[in-house]
Structure formats: C-alpha cells, structure tokens
Amino acid sequence: MAKTYSNKINKIRSFALALIFVGFIIMYGGIFFKESPIVMLIFISLGMLALMFSMVVYFLIGMLSTKAVVVNCPNCEKPTKILGRVDMCMYCREPLTLDPNLEGKEFDENYNKKSSTTQNKA
C-alpha cells in the first residue's frame, strides 16, 4: 500500500482538531461516573487539558504558519505554504521543494531531516 503524504501544516491542524474531539469524549466519559464526583472531576479535568493542549497546538501552528514560505503551486496555480525543504501543495498534493538539488527527484519526507543518511541520498 502506498504511503499517502499531505501538507505539514494541515497534518498539525488535523492533530489539533482530533485533540478537541478526544477532549470532549473524555469529558463526556465522566458522565458515567456521576456517583463518584472525584472520578468525574478527573475525567473532566483530563478533557479540559486535552482542549487546552489543542489550543496551544493551534497557536503554535499559527505562529509557524506566519513564517512559512508562500509559493504558487505549478500544478494548480494556488498559493500554498511550504515548511522545510520538501512539502506538498495544500490543495492538489503536488510535491514541492525550494531546494534546487531536489528538483526532479522522487518525493521523500526524509529530506527534511538533518541526518547523514538523507544527505547521502541527495
């Protein structure tokens, strides 16, 4: 099965959205423990922590998004943001790079890592 790639900013935003739903599910799980207020309080507190962590993630990706490089996708002609050396278009999932050494090569997220093995690939 082929590995699907997506834009890094969208991945992080999806993670933060999932945290919101998980937080609500945890808080609603506390309803099953109405008889024990301590356990119910623990569930509600854990759910609130997940919601607060989601808020922090949204804030951090917003700050990171302001520093991302905006380019026009050659495929769909829409402006998209790139984080790292390689990324995908937010709209049409076209592989994009700002590194001229990587142009024409197959897309690999490992090009963003600063290890010696990815440097040897290039």
Rank of each mutant, 00 (worst) to 15 (best):
P37D: 05
A18P: 02
V39T: 09
L17A: 14
F59R: 08
T80L: 04
T97E: 03
D99K: 10
E77N: 11
G62Q: 06
A2L: 11
F107A: 00
L49T: 03
G23D: 00
I9K: 03
A50Y: 02
K34H: 12
P79M: 09
G29K: 04
L49K: 02
T117Q: 15
N112E: 01
C92R: 10
I38P: 05
L17R: 15
K113T: 14
E94Y: 15
Y28H: 10
M90S: 11
K78N: 05
M1T: 07
M27G: 08
I31P: 06
K8C: 04
K78F: 04
N7S: 00
M27C: 08
Y28S: 10
Y91I: 03
V56Q: 12
S6E: 14
F21M: 12
N75M: 02
F53C: 10
P79C: 11
G23F: 10
K78S: 02
D99H: 10
F59I: 06
S14D: 04
F15C: 06
Y5C: 02
V70N: 07
K114E: 12
L96D: 05
G104V: 03
G104S: 01
S115V: 07
Y111I: 01
D108L: 02
I26T: 09
I31H: 10
K113D: 14
M1Y: 13
F33L: 03
E77H: 15
D108W: 06
K114C: 13
F24G: 14
M55G: 14
T97H: 09
E94W: 15
A18E: 09
L17G: 15
I82M: 02
L96S: 06
I82H: 01
I61T: 01
